[in-house]
Design a protein around this nucleic acid. Sequence first.
DNA 1: TATGTTGTTGGCAAAATGGCCAATAAACAG
DNA 2: CTGTTTATTGGCCATTTTGCCAACAACATA
Lengths: 107, 107
Amino acid sequence: MTEVDRKRLCRRAAILKSLAHPSRLHIIELLETKPRCVGELTEAVGADITTVSKHLSVMKRVGLVRDEKHGTYSEYSLTCKCVTQLVDCIEESMAQTPYDVGCAVRQ
Amino acid sequence: MTEVDRKRLCRRAAILKSLAHPSRLHIIELLETKPRCVGELTEAVGADITTVSKHLSVMKRVGLVRDEKHGTYSEYSLTCKCVTQLVDCIEESMAQTPYDVGCAVRQ
DNA sequence: TATGTTGTTGGCAAAATGGCCAATAAACAG
DNA sequence: CTGTTTATTGGCCATTTTGCCAACAACATA
């Protein structure tokens, strides 16, 4: 296991971690349609705006989303279609390995 | 956001979470070649065997891997090729959104 | 039966994560 | 300038995750 390999695995893990949350997946799906500002996403997700803002900053840090300022608004969008592909890959995996997740909602 | 949607997002998140760790990604890569027992994986990953065993149980719970007992050995393998595809999708995403992850190793 | 090998589980402490509140920043409207 | 809207950041606490040790279980072998 070289240093390069270790870095690569860490980076993959960071990307996965930034996606591994129901609200964040929800946000990704919303952004697939079109760019949105934080307020819109907050309303759809149903959490505090500060929470959503932090979710977005995590995903921005790993490069999944990008933001563009328009006045007081921050418009977030996906950096590339490959994010959508990635999520679709999960969907396929799910189809083939069915199981039940104990999924408690924490607000 | 229906109850079904919520469940779907939670399940996706659980799968992603079970992959979102450098050691677990390492394990997945090793299993892509061929099935392996816990000891082999432990040696490659370089962690405690109990840690690796727990990593495996997490991935087993969400259906990414499966185990088969042979005497005292537990042979783990990927449940389907789609796991490989999934990881490849991440690789593609990475190629297009370069950034640096602060990646501390914790043993 | 006694011993060794292989894995799993429980438990604990350290670290990371998630969510809300308070405070702040930045742009805009009056 | 004042107040409003939109978003971000810091702080705090509860929860979750991680990783190791100790203990245990299951099988193999002498």
